[in-house]
């Protein structure tokens, strides 16, 4: 058997479960109930303030989550990758450990925790839950980049007269940007489309875009749901292009993407 034939099962898999659904989403988005070609779904979206509000609110929550993850995750990754501060690999495993557990279970546990502490569920709980769930996805790529970074760059900067702060600003930070890019992408993309976390942690009070799509599809509005999904895909696609462009330019790879 030729080696290229080995790829056939994967190719069929990609065709059936990735490409076909995407094409169907795209086709449904441009059809009305009877199957005729139309832009009606997009017109409906543009004229429905509720959908647009949910959409901008979702973007807002995703951005807040991403920024919080970055603010918490970057110092954590820096400490973890610093051989003087962290001599064992136990700490990094502890940070990654939550990823071993299903996200729904973690979220249900968060709900129980808020109940136990008598804290109200709602927007605050939602952001907490999102950050808690996605923080490892931010820490790991940054940690990875920093750990692979040649220490002689830091030494060279010190040698040329840079104070510890200048070393960080002029060398460590720019060289860790590929990891930051990957981390931002890994957090931003899934948070935009989350619906389970928001349902559970806000008792369905706060609606995210993912929830809207899910509701529409559940209620049999396949065409409108597909239209919303397509809009979200385009946004994610654009943000990915924006970040990975920087990645491609740099030789210091090491992010997850």
């Amino acid at each position: 058997m030729r080696r290229s034939n080995w790829a056939i099962p994967y190719f069929i898999f990609l065709l059936l479960f990735v490409l076909l659904p995407l094409v169907m989403v795209a086709i449904y988005a441009f059809q009305d109930n009877s199957g005729a070609f139309t832009f009606d779904q997009f017109v409906k979206f543009a004229n429905e303030p509720e959908s647009i509000n949910t959409f901008t609110y979702s973007l807002e929550i995703a951005m807040i989550t991403t920024v919080l993850c970055l603010l918490l995750g970057y110092p954590a990754a820096w400490i973890l990758s610093n051989k003087e501060l962290n001599k064992s690999s136990v700490a990094i495993i502890l940070f990654i450990l939550p990823m071993w557990i299903n996200m729904l279970i973690r979220t249900l546990a968060t709900v129980a925790l808020f109940d136990f502490a008598r804290l109200p569920l709602g927007e605050g709980a939602l952001i907490f839950g999102m950050v808690y769930n996605f923080l490892p996805f931010m820490i790991y790529p940054i940690y990875n980049t920093m750990q692979k970074m040649d220490h002689s760059y830091v030494e060279a900067a010190q040698d040329l007269g840079a104070t510890p702060l200048q070393v960080f600003r002029k060398v460590t930070l720019p060289l860790s940007m590929p990891g930051v890019g990957s981390g931002v992408l890994m957090v931003f993309m899934p948070t935009i489309s989350t619906f389970a976390i928001s349902e559970l942690l806000t008792m369905n009070k706060v609606k995210l875009f993912g929830t809207t799509i899910q509701e529409n599809i559940n209620n049999g509005l396949w065409n409108y749901g597909s239209c919303l999904a397509l809009i979200m895909l385009v946004i994610i696609g654009v943000s990915q292009m924006f970040v990975s462009q920087d990645d491609l330019d740099s030789d210091e790879k090491g992010g997850l993407i």
């Binding site: 040649d150 760059y153 030494e155 060279a156 740099s250």
Partner: peptide
Amino acid sequence: LNTVFQRYALFPH
């Protein structure tokens, strides 16, 4: 004093 490193350590960025 300044050092010339074995593998140069030029800043790639």
